[in-house]
Simulated assay, not measured.
Amino acid sequence: MANYAIVTDLNRCVGCLACSVSCKVANNVPIGNFWNKTLRIGPNPKYEGAQWPDVEMYFLTVQCQHCEDPECVKVCPTGASHIAEDGTVQIDKEKCIGCQFCAMSCPYGVRYLNEEERVVEKCTLCQQRIGQGELPQCVSQCSARARFFGDLDKGIDSFEAPWVVDITEGDPSYEKNVKTRITLKECVQEYTEEDVHHLPDVGNKPSFAYILRDRTWQGDN
């Protein structure tokens, strides 16, 4: 079984919201709801007592973390919330009764009730796309090449994003872009294990990872 996830290089993210917007379009997310939110963290002082311009900030994308041991699956009374064969956390809408126990148990507040269908929804990691060998929409539309998709069992250095267009040479065509991949190791600046972070773990073991260098990680607050 695979263990799919997304790794985001927060030093590359510019907060353009392309991931959030493209996700809503591709997955027909209702107005007022999001599968993928982009939060601004800061500006915060670089050191105690610091004032502008000695401040720092970054953008943090928050969505379903497709946890290894998800709380939402544990509390679901019908089995609608479940771990799929590819390791992602999915919702079977035919089984969902809209009780919202899963939404209340999620540590990250990324589930919501679709008022029209009366079922709970969240990020599916674009299961319809990755099942055909494509990248999740938020990864394929990231203009900063900050987001990478892959199998945790193979290590995050192997995670992939669309090819980076070289404006001085090479083929900049759309066809080249959508069919050619670049790995995280080939694309991002060097990082250490201390630079890799996760959202708070309350026993659910979130799968998504975030790389942040030379700034103070605020994701545990």
Rank of each mutant, 00 (worst) to 15 (best):
N27I: 03
C138G: 07
P70W: 00
V202I: 09
D153Y: 10
H82V: 02
N44L: 08
G87P: 15
G87E: 10
V202P: 06
N33V: 04
C138L: 14
I31R: 13
D153P: 05
C16I: 06
E190N: 04
C138E: 01
M104I: 12
T180Q: 05
A209L: 10
L125M: 08
A50L: 05
S81I: 03
V164S: 03
E134N: 08
C123R: 00
S20D: 04
N114S: 15
R215W: 06
E175G: 14
N11Y: 09
V196L: 08
F149I: 02
K154P: 03
F208L: 05
Y112T: 05
N204I: 09
S22V: 03
T168F: 11
C16R: 05
C13T: 10
F149V: 00
D166H: 12
R145A: 11
C96N: 06
C64Y: 01
F149Y: 01
C96I: 09
K37V: 01
T216D: 08
G42Q: 01
E68R: 14
Y58V: 11
G133Q: 03
C67M: 10
P206D: 08
P70R: 11
R213K: 11
G79I: 09
R213I: 05
M57K: 15
G219D: 14
H66Y: 03
E68Y: 10
D220C: 12
E160S: 11
T8Q: 04
D92M: 09
R213C: 08
R118P: 02
F159C: 15
T78C: 12
V25R: 00
D171V: 05
D166I: 13
A5I: 04
M1D: 11
H198E: 15
I41L: 09
A18L: 06
Q100K: 15
K37I: 01
D171P: 14
Q51E: 15
C106E: 06
E121W: 13
S140W: 02
E169S: 11
E175V: 11
E190D: 11
G109V: 08
V139F: 00
R12S: 03
K24W: 01
P172R: 00
A103D: 04
L39N: 13
C106S: 08
C23K: 00
G219P: 10
V202D: 12
E116R: 10
C76D: 14
E193N: 11
D220V: 09
T183G: 00
P107D: 12
C99W: 11
K122A: 07
A146N: 02
E68F: 07
K179Y: 07
A103L: 05
E190T: 13
R145Q: 08
S158C: 05
E115R: 08
L199S: 02
I91P: 07
K37W: 01
Q137E: 03
K24D: 01
Q137M: 08
E193A: 11
R147K: 12
C96S: 09
V110I: 02
K205W: 14
Y108V: 00
